[in-house]
Structure formats: C-alpha cells, structure tokens
Write a protein that binds this DNA or RNA. Structure first.
Lengths: 224, 224
DNA sequence: TGTTGTCCCAATGTCAACATTTGTACATCG
DNA sequence: CGATGTACAAATGTTGACATTGGGACAACA
C-alpha cells in the first residue's frame, strides 16, 4: 500500500496559491501579500509564508527582503533559461527512462500520445493539450526514477506551465503541428533503449519549443 | 558596486547549520531538533524552521511531517542519483560557458587549475582540494550565467560536498591522479568553444567520479 | 507470550502579538 | 528650486505561547 502523505497547512496553502497563479487569476508581477493570503485562505501568516517559500523554490514567485513576494514575471531571457535547463534535464530523464522502461510503461506512454491525437481531432482547448504534454513528461521522469532529477524538474516545471499558459495561443499552433509526431517518435526511440539518437531527439523536442518561443517574444535574449 | 544583500536570520541560521554538517560536527542520520538549534544559535524556532527548509531544498536535510529533520544519510543509490544529475548539469554548464567565455575568464579558470597543482605538490589536505575543485566548477556555472541552471546546481552542490567529505580519503587518491589533468583538459576544450568533445569530457569528468564512488561503496545501486 | 489499548512526553505544527524595515509624502534647508 | 531629512503607514521579519502529533513504556487482555 502507498502510505498516506500528510503535509500540513503550508503545502496546502502553496497548492492553492499555485493554482491561482497557474489559472491566471493573479497576473505576473502582482504582489502576494501575506496578510491578504492568510485571510483569504483562513490560515496563519506563518503557514502562508512557508507556502510562499515553496513556490519560490519552484520559481513561480520572487521575493525580496522586507519587500514581499510577487508573481514571477517571465521575460524572454527567463524563457530561454528555463527551456535550456529543461532540455538538459529531459535529455537525462529520457535516457534514464529508456534504460529502465518495461513494456507496460511503454504502452502507458503510447496511450498518452494517442490521447493527444484524440484531443487534437476533438478540437480540445489549449489547457487540455498542455496538461497531456506535461503528463507525458511527468511519466518519463517518474520512470527515470531518480529523485534528484525529479526535484530539479520540479524546479522548472511550474515555470514551464506558466510560460505555456501565457503563450497559450502560440502553443496551440505549435502543438497542432508537432505534438503527436514528436512524442510518438520519443516513445519509439525509448523502446529501443538509450541511444545518441534518443538523446538528441529529447533535447531537440524541447529546444525547438524554446526557439519558437524566443522567436515569438521578439529578440535574442542574450548576447549571442 | 555590488549591492549588499541582507538576508535575515533564517539564511544566517541555514549557513551555520550547513557549516556544522559540512564540517562533520553532526553526522548523517542525526536529528536536528528545532528547540536545540534555536537555543544554540540564539534565534527563535521560526527562523530555525525556515533555515531547515533551505537546507532541505539543498538536499542536506530530510524532514517528515511531525517527525522533524535529520541530516541526510547518503547511501549508494543517492550518490548515483546526485552524480548522474550533476553530470547532466555540468554538461550544459560547460557548453554554455564555452559559448560565452572571454579570455580573462579562461585565465581565471587556468589559474585555479594551477592552484590545484601547487596544492597537490604541497601535499595539501583533502579539504583544500575539495574546495578548489568546487571553486572551479562554481566559476564555470557563474560564467554560464543561467540562474535556473545555477539553482539546479545548488540543489545538488551541498550533497556533492557532503559525499566528498565522507569519502575524503578516497577522493584524495582520485584527485591525485586526475584532478589537474581533467580540469586542464576542460579549460583547453572550452577555449575552443562548444563542441561534442567538450560535452563528453564534462560528462565523463563527473561520471568517472560517480563510477569510482559506486565501486567503492560496494554494489550496483539499481537494477542495472 | 504476543497483541492490543492507554497514557504520557517530547517534538513539531500553528498561531497571533511585537519589532523592524521600506517607501512615500511632506517639511526643511542650502 | 533641488537636495536632504523626518514622520508615518504598510508590509514583512521575528518571537514566544498554544495545539497537535508521533513514539515508547506500560498495563490489560486473549
């Protein structure tokens, strides 16, 4: 049996605040005041504070000494950073997963890809596609079964989600073209075990999204 | 001017506790009681609590609900995870740094390598070598100039430090053979810009250390 | 004798009050 | 009139007290 995990109010508070950010109810840049949140969540400031610390390590929130916390405002440079790191993590996750994956897990991934296909044909909204995309990659990280790797992934995951949210119209176009094809190819390569081709595909899968986003956001983020 | 960074008691407390762990004054597995620490550091339990949360995100401390925090006890499996993730991060950091590095920074890295050589000839203790090794890689991450990457690095850095500490006699042997040579080679390759050879060297630099540690610790950590 | 239930204590989780800092508006001075 | 200093309000940082939980010792029971 999987033992129940009791987490306390701080994590609960973090979940609620994360939701309201990722649902777009509070926009990037807006302040997250401890007293306000404590009142609206009906917990003490201490718990809110601890929850905000959780969100800060996820990169969703930025806080400064005696100046409080604000919803992270992700600019072009930040998108570049997040996707660059994600590419490196995904490369490792995909390779590790490929060396440990069993047929049942391959089938599970493939069924997620098919769900993407159905969602596209059914003209599903962007949120559904984003959810399926993240679910796929979450599964890959779970299969890789490396808690440090998962922690590092969680350090950028929420930011990826936030970027996708704010660029949702773009993502829909991007998804429509490549979502099923690229993921299917990843599964196919994973079924053959780790390889240089798989490593490249995993990196490229993320990097093409990065390039598209950077292009969309206007200019090169750094002095390249 | 680099503006001063005021951080509050929680970070100060985290620093002190981290020191006592990394200095070996508290051994892996031992409990870190909030009241004890609060008394000995002369701050409130709240600040200690926040400090322990910082150390938890660094992977130095593991805490469970209503059961308190303990110094992380790193077993074979954990060493494997940490070094596997570190290899992926170092690969990216080294490639990114290579594409941005300027001559002055190359010289700085090379001078660190020479310091390693002098330390080895002067029969310095293991702690000095560990410090120089980490200083070198910290510089590479700083040159890569990607805050998400640096955050991810900080998520494993302290654990690397802890592993090196507990295996210090082994590391000295490992260092004596490869320290100067491998780092010098990394600098040389970086001076020529990013390349597949550099990527492999950076990965292999970490992975050889991983293999040596795993071998030392006895058995294969996972079902490979 | 092994198992179950109860009590108790130590430690953490939570809270609300107090202290400190920051930013701003306004007064003061050169 | 611009620069500097001061007072105040709003928010966070810090603290000690109270509530809740987990684990172990011990007794009751089959």
């Amino acid at each position: 049996m999987r033992r129940v995990r009791r987490r306390g109010l701080a994590h609960e508070a973090a979940d609620r605040i994360r939701e309201s950010i990722l649902d777009g109810r509070v926009s990037p840049g807006s302040p997250l005041r401890e007293v306000e949140l404590a009142a609206s969540l009906d917990v003490s400031r201490g718990s809110v504070r601890e929850g905000l610390a959780v969100l800060e390590r996820e990169g969703l929130v930025r806080s400064e000494w005696h100046r409080g916390a604000r919803v992270m405002d992700l600019r072009s440079r930040d998108v570049d950073e997040v996707y660059t790191v994600r590419a490196a993590l995904d490369r490792l996750a995909t390779l590790s997963a490929a060396s440990r994956i069993v047929p049942a897990q391959l089938a599970e991934l493939e069924s997620l890809v098919q769900a993407m296909g159905r969602a596209l044909e059914g003209d599903a909204d962007g949120l559904t596609l984003i959810a399926l995309d993240l679910a796929f990659h979450d599964r890959v990280y779970a299969i890789a079964d490396n808690s440090r790797l998962t922690d590092a992934w969680h350090g950028v995951r929420s930011q990826v989600r936030l970027i996708q949210l704010t660029r949702i119209e773009h993502d829909q176009a991007h998804y429509r073209d490549l979502l099923v094809g690229e993921h299917h190819e990843l599964v196919r390569l994973m079924s053959r075990g780790p390889s240089e081709a798989l490593a490249r595909a995993a990196e490229e899968h993320v990097d093409s999204a990065r390039r598209a986003l950077i292009h969309l956001l206007g200019q090169a983020p750094r002095g390249r």
